[in-house]
């Protein structure tokens, strides 16, 4: 149930506040994964069309972030991590943020349809709808599986990038989708382990709040294990190569060790060292995703040199 926000717009809005409203960190991840989807696609895209498509995908991500902040302004004001965002601070009114988000979303979808194709634009519209309506408005406040199901929105950008280049779906973008989808729970649950109090205060039913830390740690390990076959399939497939395979083996090994370490830790140990291992695991999850996707790009450039590499499927 959404709660009333008491803050009223007072201070003047600066450029930085507008940028924060677009969630630049999420946006950078979206741009990067969409770029990978575009670069590894078997059809080359004209650089201008590629750049324009990436810009409109980024604007779509920014619109989603803005609409998420509009809806979540009440809970953001209760959490340490988010209480300095522009709406809880009163730098922009929730209505203005909603208007900005809706206009940007419309612009991004229409322009992507014109720049790339209708399927890519449709997927971008689906991503925005899924993130704002399904995740933010519905799941986030109702189920501890919120970020599992909601993770689908964050997993779609490489698929959009691929479709912008090729105009069609294939197994490879589905694997990229699956990888980000399975990576999202360990990433966010690690964050929620050391931000547990924040979520409890805002009454968000995160797994750590509803089921406790021990269960969350087991779930993190489960999803980390599920990541292994997907990343290996991707590395052994037509978009992969020697670099992807090497990185997948090393990164999965380190990520799995981190997850096992989290399962072995007790709540007392974690509180004692201020969730040091959990913070480390969270930071590493970002490196993991970056390197797994960077490996795919590296293989595109290495492919002419590694002619003996034969994809398994």
């Amino acid at each position: 149930m959404k709660r009333e926000l008491t803050a009223t717009p007072a201070a003047d809005l600066g450029v930085n506040d507008l940028l924060v409203l677009l969630k630049p960190r999420v946006m950078s991840l979206v741009i990067f994964t969409a770029l990978v989807g575009m670069v590894v696609a078997p059809v080359s895209i004209h650089p201008v069309i590629g750049l324009a498509s990436l810009a409109f995908i980024a604007i779509g991500a920014g619109a989603s972030g803005t609409l998420n902040m509009w809806w979540d302004a009440d809970v953001d004001s209760m959490m340490r991590r988010t209480r300095n965002r522009p709406i809880p601070c009163g730098k922009i009114s929730a209505d203005d943020a909603r208007l900005m988000g809706l206009w940007l979303a419309g612009l991004a979808v229409v322009m992507l349809a014109l720049a790339a194709n209708l399927l890519a634009a449709g997927l971008l519209a689906l991503t925005i709808f899924y993130y704002v309506v399904i995740y933010t408005m519905w799941l986030k406040r109702t189920t501890p599986q919120n970020i599992v199901i909601g993770g689908a929105a964050g997993a779609l950008p490489p698929v959009i990038g691929w479709v912008a280049a090729t105009g069609a779906l294939a197994l490879e973008p589905v694997l990229m989708f699956a990888l980000i989808f399975l990576w999202t729970p360990p990433h966010f649950w690690a964050l929620s382990l050391f931000m547990h109090d924040d979520y409890a205060r805002a009454r968000i039913p995160m797994l750590t709040v509803v089921r406790g830390e021990t269960v969350t740690r087991r779930y993190i390990l489960g999803y980390t294990c599920a990541l292994v076959p997907v990343s290996l399939m991707m590395a052994l497939g037509s978009v992969g190569g020697p670099m992807s395979l090497s990185l997948a083996i090393v990164m999965n090994g380190v990520f799995l060790l981190g997850a096992v370490n989290l399962v072995r830790r007790t709540d007392v140990e974690a509180t004692g060292d201020r969730y040091r291992a959990e913070r480390k695991f969270f930071r590493f999850s970002l490196v993991y995703l970056f390197l797994i996707f960077a490996g795919l790009i590296a293989d595109v450039f290495l492919r002419p040199l590694a002619s003996s590499w034969l994809p398994l499927f």
Partner: peptide, 13 residues
């Protein structure tokens, strides 16, 4: 600038 460049590319191709 982006829309103009897109127009040139689309018409040119």
């Amino acid at each position: 600038v982006l829309v103009f460049a897109l127009t040139l590319v689309k018409l040119g191709s």
